[in-house]
Computed example of a mutant assay.
Amino acid sequence: MSRTRRAVGFDVVDLGLRASRDAKGVPAELLDGYLEDLAELSTTGVQLGAKQLRVRHAAGARAAADGVPLRDLVDLYLSATWLAWSSLPGVRDATGADAVRAVGEAVFRAADAAVTALAEGYEEAQRWSVRREESFRREFVDDLLDGRNLGHLAERAERIGFRLAASNVVAAMRAEEPIAVGGEVARNVETAVQLRLGSRDVLVTTKDGLLVCVSPALAADVPEEFVRQVSAVMGVEADWRVGLGRAQSGPGGAVRSFEQARDALDIADRLALPGRLHKAADLLVYQVLLRDSAALADLVGEVLEPLRQARGGAGPLLDTLAAYFACGSVATVCARNLHLGVRTVTYRLQRIRELTGYAADDPGQGFTLQVAVLGAKLLGWPDAGS
Results as ranks from 00 to 15, higher is better:
Arg200Val: 12
Val342Gly: 07
Tyr324Gly: 01
Met173Ser: 07
Glu120Met: 10
Val371Trp: 03
Val204Gly: 07
Val91Cys: 01
Thr81Cys: 07
Arg174Met: 11
Leu355Asn: 03
Asp362Glu: 11
Val345Gln: 06
Asp319Ser: 12
Leu244Thr: 08
Thr116Ile: 09
Leu349Cys: 09
Gly161Trp: 06
Leu299Phe: 03
Ser135Glu: 14
Ser42Met: 06
Ala99Asp: 15
Val185Lys: 03
Ser167Trp: 03
Glu259Leu: 10
Ala264Val: 05
Tyr286Gly: 03
Tyr77Thr: 11
Leu307Met: 08
Trp381Thr: 02
Asp22Lys: 13
Asp201Leu: 14
Val141Tyr: 01
Ala175Met: 08
Ala172Lys: 01
Gly45Pro: 00
Asp221Ile: 13
Ser249Tyr: 04
His152Asn: 13
Asp292Tyr: 02
Gly252Val: 08
Phe140Cys: 06
Arg21Ile: 02
His278Leu: 12
Glu176Ile: 04
Leu307Glu: 01
Val130Lys: 11
Gly33Ala: 09
Arg200Ile: 08
Ile179Asp: 03
Gly341Ile: 11
Asp292Arg: 10
Leu355Cys: 06
Ala254Thr: 11
Asn168Glu: 15
Glu120Gln: 13
Val100Lys: 07
Asp93Phe: 10
Asp72Phe: 02
Leu41Ser: 05
Thr4Arg: 13
Ala322Arg: 08
Gly341Ser: 14
Gly16Leu: 01
Gly245Ile: 04
Pro316Leu: 05
Pro251Asn: 10
Ser42Gly: 08
Glu133Pro: 00
Phe108Ser: 13
Asp66Trp: 10
Gly341Phe: 06
Asp143Ser: 09
Glu225Asp: 11
Leu290Val: 06
Ala376Met: 03
Glu354Pro: 00
Val181Cys: 05
Gly380Val: 06
Phe367Gln: 15
Cys334Lys: 02
Arg131Met: 12
Ala186Asn: 04
Asp66Arg: 05
Leu164Gln: 13
Arg291Tyr: 08
Leu41Pro: 00
Lys207Ala: 04
Ala295Gly: 11
Thr43Lys: 07
Pro251Tyr: 09
Arg163Thr: 15
Arg308Val: 13
Ser2Glu: 15
Leu244Pro: 01
Val230Glu: 05
His339Gln: 15
